[in-house]
């Protein structure tokens, strides 16, 4: 099994800084280091306004949340996909991989340098991924901004990106370096979707940690 701590430390040393154009090209994408509160607050405000317009109808709320989770698919698909195809991943992680689940372990170890909180794998197989997140930036933002607990989980990006991670490893077979294009995206998340997931505990609700469960449909 991969030494996740080793991978985290190796990737934490990577210099991910802006170039002379004020941009941060890395892993075949352009990165930004915007405050987590920006993403979180625009998402929560969106959810609120969306629901208010339709008298807080539960189905409407669910539709708004689905949109935010889909943004997480886009994130995971492109960023994780780019990282797992990168030279850096091939030099640090791939030599340690013994089984398919190690792709998940390696990538989760790298998530821990993104500022998103501390992700810990509780269980992983092709059927299921259970993650426990300490200090998830979305849940943390909720509690700080609204100074209260929510009655539903708030880590939409974390759920969407985790579904994308399982889809990339066990559905798209990222080890074959597939093209990360619209066609593949459509297959993974629409046409022949294989994974779904939910957040079952969230610090925004007052739990100690967030817990995310991804399973095969």
């Amino acid at each position: 099994m991969i030494d996740m701590e080793y991978v985290t430390i190796q990737f934490s040393k990577a210099e991910i800084n802006n170039d002379e154009n004020g941009l941060i090209p890395a892993f075949d994408v352009f990165l930004t280091k915007i405050q987590g509160d920006y993403y979180s607050q625009i998402s929560f405000e969106f959810e609120k306004i969306f629901a208010e317009g339709l008298q807080n109808d539960p189905e409407t709320l669910e539709a708004a949340r689905e949109l935010l989770i889909e943004a997480g698919h886009v994130c995971g698909f492109n960023t994780f996909g780019g990282i797992m195809k990168s030279d850096e991943f091939y030099s640090v992680v791939v030599p340690l991989i013994q089984e398919k689940e190690d792709w998940i372990r390696g990538m989760v170890a790298i998530i821990n340098v993104l500022g998103w909180g501390v992700y810990k794998i509780i269980e992983v197989s092709e059927e299921k991924l259970i993650l426990e997140i300490k200090n998830s930036y979305e849940g943390d933002a909720y509690v700080r901004c609204y100074k209260t607990h929510s009655d539903s989980p708030k880590c939409y990006l974390a759920v969407g990106a985790s579904i994308a991670l399982m889809s990339l490893v066990f559905h798209a077979d990222i080890s074959q370096k597939p093209e990360l294009d619209d066609l593949l995206y459509d297959n993974l998340f629409r046409k022949s979707r294989k994974y779904t997931g939910k957040e079952t505990q969230c610090i925004a609700m007052g739990h100690d940690n967030c817990r995310i469960e991804i399973s095969r449909i």
């Binding site: 990165l31 280091k33 915007i34 405050q35 987590g36 889909e70 994130c75 500022g115 930036y137």
Partner: peptide
């Protein structure tokens, strides 16, 4: 403040979705 790394695809998609 807490910064988080995100990519152009997410940034663009999220903004456009909202």
């Amino acid at each position: 403040k807490r910064a988080v790394l995100h990519c152009n695809h997410y940034n663009t998609f999220l903004q456009r979705t909202l």
